[in-house]
Each structure stands twice: as structure tokens, then as C-alpha cells.
Amino acid sequence: MRKLWISATYVIFALLLGAPIVRIATGAWADGWSGFASGITRPEAQHALLMTGMIVVIVTVINTLFGVMLALYLVRAPWLGKQLRRVLNSIVDLPFAVSPVIGGLMIVLLLGPDTVIGSLLSRSGIDIVYALPGMVIATLFVTFPLIIREVMPVLQEIGDQQEEAAQMLGAYPWTIFWRVTWPSIQWSVVYGVVLTVARTLGEFGAVLVVSGNILFRTQTATTLVYQDVENFNLTAANAVALVLAAGSVALLLFMEWAKSRRAR
């Protein structure tokens, strides 16, 4: 009976996770190397991958900076008051609870060309929605909690006594952060960054709503795959999907390594 359950688990695991990857890989190679190569070297794929790459870099930098700062303030700032901190703490989780598509829609409704803010900004030459800034904002929204939720428990666990000790030894906040706090949270931040990158690579719903999926302008790797599938351009879709999947697998391996470092 036990053996049956174990094998059933493996079968489900293989069907759910293994089969799609194998299918993508074989699909990408359906026309041999040239099919795969042309799938990812065509101009629209190059542009889409570049867009995805840009979003990944911008979102990761902004989220890391503000994620660590907000985590510090939520844990270490008694002057914020208990109630306010509790409210902030629950707002942080909002993106987990709201569907990314709804998140994207909220941005369109707030900053779209038909809104007051959106029209004001577009008159001064800045496009938010259907342009890169909107896509960055949408992805920021979706990935916002990831780093904060990794760092906060660690900060709570280490407490503030080491920081106070550093203070008594003459260190000021900047030194304290880099020499005392950072070494304790660095692997959690790395872990959070990996999660953010992975989520940003794969983000579809929010970006699709905000970007409008305009070829050579706002198309990302995921929305390109979507469009290729719609157009029955399966080999090309598989090729781009394989690149994304390979990136995710590499990230996961890196994450495992980061986790083992954090455990030390």
C-alpha cells in the first residue's frame, strides 16, 4: 500500500512538472537546431527578451532597496506605533491576495491615458501605461512582498541587542547596518532576490494588462510566447519558453545554494 502511494506521488510529480518541461524541450527542437535558433533570434524574440531583462533588473534593484528598508522599519521602528505597523504589515501581503490581473487593471484605472494623472503625465511626455514604466510598476506590485517576507523574520529573530551593543561601542547607524545587521540578513536578501527575479521572469497577467502587448514596444518574453501560441507558431513559442524555463531552473539551483548558506 505504501509503495503504491510513493509511486503515485512520483507519477503525479512527473506528470505535473517533468512532462511539460520535456514537451517544451522536444517542441523547441521539433525543427532541429535551426528551428530553435530562429525561434529565439528573430527580432521580436530578441526585443521581448530584452524587455524582460530590463524589467528584471529595474524591479530587482528597486525591490531590494525598498524591501530591505521597509523590513527594517516594520521591525525596528517603535516610533511608528503598534497599530500603524500592524496595518502596514498586512498591506505588505496584499499582492499575494490580489490576482496579478486585478493588480494590472488597478494600475490602468489609476494611471491610464484616460485618467487625470495619466493624461497629465502623457502631456509632459511620460507614458506610464502601455509603456515600460507601467510594466515595471505592475511587476513591482506583484513581487513587492517577496523580499520583505524573507527578511522580516530574520530581523525579528536576531533582535536588536547586537545593534545596541554596536551602538554602545561607538558605531553609528550606517556602520551598524553594514557591519552588524547586513551579515545576518544577507542570505535572506539573496533568497528574496532570487524569488523576485524568478517571479519577474514569469510574470504574465499584470504585465499583459498594463503593456497592451505591443510588438517591438511592450512585448515581454511571456507575452510573446502567448502570442506565438495564439498564432500556431509552436516551435518559436517552445524555443522562448525553453529559454525562460532554463533561466528559472538555474535560479532554483542558485536558490538552493543560497538556502544552504543561510542555514549556516
Binding site: Q162, R179, S184
Partner: peptide, 9 residues
């Protein structure tokens, strides 16, 4: 400090 608060790293 009561729990020494040594820098553990």
C-alpha cells in the same frame, strides 16, 4: 548585555 549580544558572525 544579558544575553551578551555578541556579533555572531
Amino acid at each position: 548585555f544579558q544575553n551578551y549580544a555578541l556579533f555572531k558572525h
